[in-house]
């Protein structure tokens, strides 16, 4: 089962190494991870997507909480939340297919961020399903290169 965990950590060097070391030592699998700054300059936020049972996750949360650099761990898997990740997809495109591709990108509210002779680069933001769908639709044209960010998430309303 997949879980989304938001971790507030100290914004200082070595923090990611501590988290990564903990994950490998305790045998937890990270599916995606993204780190970034927050409204508080002393705090960074790590959004993790991890696989495992409920028991695994409980242990993971407790172990994370033991790290001195970890301020707060929230499992937001079942909370009402908005989550997004982003992808760049470089796809083969010539004069005959370019407009079809642009149409698909429009439907997904993506953007063409670069055009070359024989390819275009597409930027798409959304939840996992949307990015997967986009990838699938562009596949037949020939995907040259693809890169995805980890997921970031925030719960709705106050908190």
């Amino acid at each position: 089962m997949k879980h989304t965990v938001a971790v507030q950590v100290a914004n200082e060097s070595g923090v990611l190494a501590r988290i990564a070391s903990l994950f490998s030592r305790r045998g937890f699998n990270i599916e995606s991870l993204s780190v970034g700054q927050t409204e508080d300059e002393d705090v960074s936020r790590i959004t993790l997507v991890v696989c495992g049972s409920q028991k695994d996750l409980e242990q993971l949360e407790k172990q994370l909480n033991k790290l001195i650099v970890v301020y707060k761990v929230s499992n937001i898997t079942n909370d009402p939340a908005v989550s997004r990740s982003m992808a760049f997809i470089k796809v083969r495109a010539d004069y005959s297919t370019r407009s079809e591709i642009i149409q698909i990108v429009d439907v997904f509210r993506g953007e063409i961020v670069d055009v070359a002779n024989d390819s275009v680069m597409v930027e798409v933001t959304g939840d996992e399903g949307k990015i997967n769908a986009m990838e699938e639709l562009l596949e037949p044209y020939g995907i040259i290169e693809l890169v995805r960010t980890g997921k970031i998430a925030m719960t709705r309303g106050k908190k």
Binding site: K55, E58, Q59, K62, Q63, N65, K66
Partner: peptide
């Protein structure tokens, strides 16, 4: 005292 030991 260590919550991580409880239920481990």
């Amino acid at each position: 005292i260590d919550p991580a030991e409880v239920g481990k």
